[in-house]
Amino acid sequence: MSDQQRYGQQYGESYEGYDPYQQQQQYGGQQPQEQPGAWPGQQQPAYDDAQAQQYTQQWQGQTWETQMQAPVTAAPVTPAAVAEVPETPYLPPQGTVPGAADAGYGPATVAGNPRITDAQRARLEGRSPIIEPGMQPAALTAVLGLLLSGAAAIGSYALVVPLVILQAVTAAGWFRLNGMWPARQGIALAFAGAVTADVALLAVGRENAPAAILGTLAVWVLLTLVLQLRSHADADTRMSGLMATVASAALAIIAAGHLAAEPDAVTVGAAAVAAAVLARALPLPTAASVVVALLAAAGAGIAAGGMTEMGTGGALLGVAAGVCALVGHRVACYDYPSRFVHFTAGVALPLAAAAPAVYLVGRALA
Rank of each mutant, 00 (worst) to 15 (best):
A52N: 01
T63K: 14
L201W: 13
Y336D: 12
S128C: 15
T308Q: 14
L214G: 00
V292R: 14
Q62Y: 13
G362Q: 02
Y15I: 08
V268W: 12
W174Y: 15
P133Q: 10
A348C: 04
G299S: 12
Q167Y: 05
L259K: 05
M135Q: 13
E87T: 02
L259P: 00
L140R: 11
L223P: 03
A183D: 02
A80E: 09
R127E: 01
L351G: 01
A256N: 01
Q44K: 10
P76M: 08
A364R: 04
Y105H: 13
A100T: 06
L278F: 05
A122R: 08
A103H: 01
A332S: 09
F175Q: 03
Y15L: 06
L201D: 02
G8I: 10
Q51D: 04
L214T: 02
L222R: 09
H258L: 05
G12K: 15
D198E: 05
D19S: 13
Q24E: 08
G362P: 01
L166E: 00
L242P: 05
A183M: 11
L225K: 08
A297S: 03
T88Y: 10
A75E: 02
Y55F: 07
A275I: 10
A111P: 01
Q30R: 11
Q4G: 14
P98A: 15
Y336P: 05
A158Y: 03
T224E: 11
I187W: 02
P283G: 07
Y18D: 10
A212P: 04
A265Y: 01
A200Y: 05
T245C: 03
